[in-house]
């Protein structure tokens, strides 16, 4: 890929990733975040996290299926870090706007409420991934170990979706789309691996 194309694509991805934040900032500045701004901020940052995480997880299976798109790997770190960025904003929203920095309220929430526990677990799973996202960390850990560690992204996404289901009212089905997409991505790995093995066996 030409350098100029890459720069252009990276710029576009940055803009797309910053879009939800820009909307929130603009909305807050113009007092235009709807009737319940706190809920709007929470929902926007949470959904952005799940979407970005899901897109970053889709890159590997897409590359396997369509080798001509293998350059997509250059965007995975960016997407993953933005997912972590929104997850952190989501966490800060809860700390500032729901508990008003009250340690007791936070502890009670994490201990008593499984959806908050699960959200916390998801964020904690993303934390080491963000921390080891530099080239230096990859070299230090070695490719194999780094890869194994970063499989946690799948677990974090599952925790994130469970967190979403546990948050909505029973009977409400809004998390169903992201759940289906994630389920397909989780299934794609073993299915593609199996297909690969068959091909290798057939060739031998």
């Amino acid at each position: 890929m030409k350098r100029s194309t890459l720069v252009l694509l990276k710029t576009l991805v940055w803009l797309a990733c910053l879009w939800p934040l820009a909307r929130l900032v603009w909305g807050a500045a113009t007092n235009n975040l709807g009737p319940d701004p706190t809920a709007e901020i929470t929902f926007t940052t949470g959904l952005a996290t799940l979407r970005l995480l899901t897109i970053s997880l889709a890159i590997t299976p897409v590359r396997r299926l369509l080798p001509q798109l293998s350059w997509l790997i250059r965007f995975r770190r960016l997407l993953g870090l933005f997912a972590f960025f929104y997850a952190t904003l989501h966490l800060l929203t809860w700390i500032a706007l729901y508990t008003a920095f009250d340690i007791n309220a936070m502890t009670a929430d994490v201990v008593k409420r499984r959806f908050i526990t699960m959200g916390m677990v998801a964020w904690l799973l993303l934390l080491p991934l963000a921390a080891t996202s530099t080239n230096w960390a990859i070299r230090k850990l070695g490719g194999k170990r780094w890869n194994r560690l970063h499989k946690l992204a799948y677990l974090a996404a599952v925790c994130g979706v469970v967190h979403y289901w546990w948050q909505v009212k029973p009977g409400v089905l809004t998390p169903v789309t992201i759940t289906i997409v994630l389920a397909i991505l989780l299934l794609a790995r073993p299915v593609l691996a199996l297909a690969q093995r068959r091909k290798v066996t057939a060739a031998a």
Binding site: A28, N31, L33, P35, D36, P37, T38, A39, I41, L97, Y98, A100, A105, A108, D109, K112, R113, R114, F115, W166, Q167
Partner: peptide, 22 residues
Amino acid sequence: VDHPRWSQKTERRIGLPFYAQL
């Protein structure tokens, strides 16, 4: 008495800026 999924100790007043709702 908490809702199993959130505390009922506080509430968010609708129509106020995000920093003034609680």
